[in-house]
Amino acid sequence: MSIVFERPKALSDVLMHYCPGCTHGIAHRLVAEVLDELGVCDNTVGVAPVGCAVFAYNYFECDMIEAAHGRAPAVATGVKRVLPNAVVFTYQGDGDLAAIGTAETVHAATRGENITVIFINNTNYGMTGGQMAPTTLPGQVTTTTPYGRDPKLIGYPIRVCELLSTLTGTAYAERVALNNVKNVRNAKKAIKKAFEYQLAGKGFSIVEILSTCPTNWGMSPVEATKWLEENMIPYYPLGVYKDIGGDK
């Protein structure tokens, strides 16, 4: 009998702490599959964030660093400058990347830092129990926007791919979603392309992954997927926002 499906080698054989129905597991798997397919796991350093993915250092088989909240792109910069030939990636959530770490994100991108950022957008701070994130939608209820996010009071969500696509240093920025099989396959293609761009030395690459958070959204996984499709995708359209292609 042949094996048709197995754990990617770059993914550790441990129990993950993620909630049932959360798409972090899929995102991890896609990154690990790409590291395997590119044959680079032995030559990779990953940087984990603070947030739900804080334990990501336990889940990948490459060398891993656990950064301070929001600082992963700066840490990755330090690593990459020492090991220019290594593959360096960060894995960050929306609070980490687009609130406390906005400066680190924007400046790593504008420097054209040759790293790959995997960005999980699930519109809330999951680890601390569902508070408003910079990506929380207008009207969305979280524990710190109990009456719904009021843009008059707290402003509007940040569209990260659009923002970073304006920077010359950004080589590749694409937004994908993990709501159905087709989109999961697209997500993997985007992740692979992002890493390939890094291997080709093209500069900063980011894949924004629209993800579900059934626990904090108070929904079943199926409802959460539907909510993502009906609310997130219209606000955060999927697609490629920046692709320098063959240019350098």
């Binding site: 660093i65 600082r71 700066a74 910069t77 330090g78 690593v79 400066a103």
Partner: peptide, 13 residues
């Protein structure tokens, strides 16, 4: 803040 975290990254490597 970024500078010290770059040091952290470089030291890690």
């Amino acid at each position: 803040i970024a500078a010290i975290n770059m040091v952290l990254g470089a030291a890690s490597a």
